[in-house]
Structure formats: C-alpha cells, structure tokens
Design a protein around this nucleic acid. Structure first.
Lengths: 199, 199
DNA sequence: GTCTATAACTCGATAGAC
DNA sequence: GTCTATCGAGTTATAGAC
C-alpha cells in the first residue's frame, strides 16, 4: 500500500515536470513510464484515463499552493506576503525550462478534457482572490499603492507573472522573469511615487 | 497559380485559427482539411511537413503585425500608438476562444520543432522592441510615466497582455482582458499620479 | 492540385498472466 | 501492481492515379 501511494506520487511528479515542459498533449503515458522504469500499462492502473491523470495533477498542484499561501498568511506584512508569493513562482521557473502548470494548461484550454478545464480555472481564480486580499490589505495599511480595484490589480499582477514565465523561457533567459517581476512589484510599492516624481 | 496561392492562404487562415484555439500539437492536417473541404494529402502538397506549416504560420503572423505597427508609427502620440497596439491584441481575443498565436506556441515551446522556436522568440522580441521605443518616447515627451528602463517596462507590459489573454479565456470572460489591460495602461499614464494621490 | 490508398508510427486503453 | 501483448484509432507522410 505504501508502495502504491509512492508510485502514484512519483508518476505525478514526473508527469507534472513533463507537462510543465511540453504541455498536456505532447506528453504520453510512455514518456512518463520511461522516466520511472515502468510500462505505460502500469500507469493506467493508477490513472485509468489521461483525463484522470491530468485532474490529479492540477488538484495536487492547487492543494500544494494553498498550503504554501496559507503559511504566508501568518505574516503581518502584505508586502512581505506578496514577495513570498513571487518567490513561489520563481522556484518553478528557476531550475530548467518549466513554467506554471496551469499557465501551460490554460494555453491549451479549449483542447483539454472537459473535466480539466474547471480545475485550471479554479487554480487561477484562487490565485487572484488571494492576491486581491493581500493587495487590499497592503493599500489599507499604506504599504502598497495602486489605482482601481484590488481585483483588477490582482488579475493584472497574475497575468504579468504568467506572461513573464513564457517570455523568459522563450528567450532562454530566466533573468527576464526577474526583470519583469521586479518592475511589477516595484510599481506596487508606495515609495515609487517619490522616486517617480523626479524625471 | 492564383488558385494555388489562394488555397495556401486559406490553409494558413484555418490553421492559424485552430492553433490559436487548441495549440500546435492538438491540431492535425485532417482538422485543417475538413474545414476547407479538402483531404490531408492536399495540404502536404502546399506544406510538406507540419514544421513547414508552423513556420509559415508564425512568419506570416509576424509580418502582418509588422505592417500594422509600421502604420502606427506615423502617429505622433506615443500614448495613441500604445492604445492602438492594445487594440490589435484585443481583436484577437474578441471573437471567440482565441489567443495570440505566439502565446500559445510559447507555452509549448520545448515541444515545438526546432525550426519554429526561434521564430516565436523573434515575434516576441519584435513586440518588446517596438513597445520599448514607444514607451521611451512617451516618457521623454511627458505623456507616459514609468520607473526603470523602457525595456523592462515593455517586457512587463507584453507579459501582462499575454497573461491577460490566457486568464480571460480560461474564465470564459473576454471582459477580463479589458479589465487587466485598462489597469496596465492607466498605470503608464502620467495622470495616474494625480488620481493616485488621493486614497 | 487534389484525389485514393496506404505505409509507418504513436497514442490511449484493455485483457489476462504472473 | 506490474508485466506482455494487443486492439483500434489517430497521426504524419508518401506513392501514384487523375
């Protein structure tokens, strides 16, 4: 039983890396099995259909982020929480040509199994809501500054993060992610108004 | 000859729509042929391999944008040019579940044919350079305002556009694209500093 | 230029031995 | 739980008739 659970998790680990790399349709059961030294039929034992595998992938991904962000909520400073949120995304980009799982899946959205699409959407929505809350608190406390609703600012910030991952990978330049993210983060800090006032 | 050229263009039209919808790997020669009433073998006459088709797709896409943006360069106002640039992207999102061709391809980047990847990168680079120039001029003329280098601001703005398309489509809410883009555009306008000063 | 036909391959998925 | 073996469908691509 422990063996089963372990194999199941290792399948998800490998599949997640591959999908983050290539996208959903360019990853096969055979690809996943080869990296684990097992046959594609064995993967069907754990995940009867590819849609099942994809579903488990996105759900685990979201659950893990929920745990990460819940841990950040104990921090008193909204700016600090925002910074740690960005760090979580940077960890994805850093090691090799990966991007956020749900960014890749969102790009294939209309071609995904019907069961998967609401899960991708739920992941993105969760990110937006968490960000909106942090931004709203940050503005209320005077630590962060932005115009418009927290919801719009949150959606824009998340969009920037997603796009930055794609740009950085296409350019084979991980530093471009930091360039963009530092720019977007700096714009949210109140100090910007004093710096920006002198041209 | 005119027939040939026409069919070739129509193949590209259909293929572009499909790839913007589903991604590169989820589109087949059969899919394209069915919408044109021809067989997949006929498409191989015009584009011997799928990599050839993909290459022609991205090159035509870039050339068209270059024409569009060259037409905008006659406008004296950088802010107006920026607004028209956003309009060009909005046109892509508007009608149905499409996103920018190169956003989709960038998401599959490591799984694309080797010949395609530099073309995707070139498209994104061209966008960044055009934006950087407009932003630099806009700041110099006092029409636009941002901190940091024009290159960083351009990369961030393009990243936001790309991400906004993915978010809007996943949410089945085209208005979300406008929400994000309006937020990002407003932040670049100098007037923001006066509006933003009153919380 | 487009067709039919098919080769050669890969895919997701199942059956049944162990 | 993992294996071998295989099915049926889909994929890119080619050959050759028209």
């Amino acid at each position: 039983m422990t063996e089963q659970a372990d194999t199941r998790e290792r399948i998800l680990d490998v599949a997640q890396r591959l999908v983050q790399h290539r996208g959903y349709h360019a990853v096969s059961y055979k690809d996943v099995g080869e990296q684990l030294g097992i046959r594609n039929a064995s993967i069907h034992y754990h995940f009867p259909s590819k849609a099942d595998l994809g579903l488990a992938l996105v759900r685990r991904y979201r659950e893990r982020l929920q745990v990460t962000l819940a841990a950040l909520d104990v921090l008193s400073s909204p700016a600090e929480r925002l910074s740690r949120f960005v760090d979580a995304y940077r960890d994805v980009v850093r090691d090799d040509g990966r991007v956020c799982l749900c960014t890749v899946l969102a790009a294939e959205d209309p071609a995904l199994p019907e069961t998967l699409r609401p899960e991708v959407r739920a992941f993105l929505d969760f990110n937006e809501r968490w960000l909106a809350r942090v931004l709203a608190e940050g503005r209320a406390e005077g630590e962060l500054r932005f115009d418009g609703s927290p919801e719009a600012a949150a959606a824009a910030f998340l969009a920037t993060l997603e796009g930055a991952m794609l740009l950085a990978r296409s350019a084979h330049d991980p530093a471009r992610f930091d360039l963009v993210v530092r720019h977007a983060t700096a714009a949210l800090h109140a100090a910007r108004f004093f710096q920006g006032a002198s041209p």
